[in-house]
Simulated scan of single mutants.
Amino acid sequence: MTTAIAEEFETHRSRLFGLAYRMLGSAEEAEDTVQDAYLRFSGADRDGIEHPAAWLAKVVTNLCLSRLTSARARREQYVGPWLPEPVITSDGTLGPLESAEQRDAVSLAMLVLLERLTPTERAVYVLREAFGYGHREIAEALELTEANCRQLYRRAVQRVGEPRSRFESSPERQEELVASFVAAARDGDLARLEKLLAADVVWSSDSGGKVSAARRPVEGREKVSRFVLGVTQKFLAGVDVAAVEINGAIALAAWAGDTLLWVAAFELRDGLITHARAVMNPDKLDFVRRQLARA
């Protein structure tokens, strides 16, 4: 019986992880949440679970709501900019990302926007947008009225803003642009680097105060260019940098031997880099490090 339960649960694990990750912005916490859901599933009365997928989604959503309350308090004390934990998506960890809309839904940029929402608004938005739940299904999962869910969804959409594609360029063009960025930075070519950046470009670094990094976002083409050149000259000697797909976007992973130093995902518009988000906090790199080790 235990084996059958475990096998049944495994058919839902990937979807549940995707739900928890979008809710929490943390791959490590998403894994823990899914494991908690498994323990509840394995100990539940089978006769009381008519639709396992819906039952598990409800359990995971409510576990996430509990975690989000304490996460908000921790993030208020966070040192410097907070970014979600990165996830390699080229291996299907967050499901198929075949369209710009699907990639945008799991982007670091979108996950940052979701931080604007209350936990319940976030649950409604994620279940509706990412998983296609109807308002009646969402109401049942959250034990709210359907009218309340509709109101929460409208408020969430207003707070997140109008959807727009952050991946207008083809994957090949994205990789070409980021390769040019790395080459210009390595060569110390300021003029060439500036040509790759939008005038209002922003560079955000998430270190949690655990490694040296800018405590505030760097804004503007000139400041970002000089910041990148300074960091490259000071810290990238002997470091290997490789292109990877992080949260549906072209990104860079920097290694010093077997140590993953950071990953940086790039948001593009009109063929230029508009935002770079570098995750440097070692605690936030464990999941992606394990993914890369298996590749």
Rank of each mutant, 00 (worst) to 15 (best):
A4D: 15
E10Q: 15
R13L: 04
S14E: 10
L16A: 04
L16N: 03
L19I: 14
R22F: 05
G25S: 08
A30G: 08
D32L: 10
V34K: 03
Q35P: 00
A37R: 00
L39P: 00
F41P: 00
A44F: 12
A44G: 12
R46T: 09
R46C: 09
D47R: 11
H51E: 15
A54K: 04
W55N: 01
L56T: 07
V59S: 14
R67L: 12
L68M: 15
A71S: 14
R74C: 05
D91K: 10
P96Q: 02
P96N: 07
L97H: 00
S99P: 03
S99T: 15
A100Y: 04
R103E: 11
A105H: 02
V106Q: 05
V106K: 01
R116G: 13
L117V: 08
R122F: 03
Y125Q: 01
V126K: 00
I138Q: 03
A139N: 07
A141D: 03
L142H: 03
E143F: 13
L144W: 10
C149P: 10
V160D: 08
S165I: 05
F167V: 14
S170I: 08
E172I: 06
E172M: 13
A179F: 13
R186S: 09
D187T: 07
R192V: 08
A198K: 10
V201L: 07
V202C: 13
W203H: 10
W203L: 15
D206R: 03
K210S: 12
G220Y: 14
K223M: 13
R226G: 08
L229S: 03
G230P: 07
Q233S: 13
K234Q: 11
D240Y: 06
A242H: 06
A242V: 13
A243K: 04
V244T: 00
I246K: 01
N247S: 14
N247H: 07
N247D: 04
A256Y: 12
D258W: 12
L260Y: 07
L268G: 06
G271L: 07
A278Q: 06
M280Y: 04
P282R: 03
L285K: 06
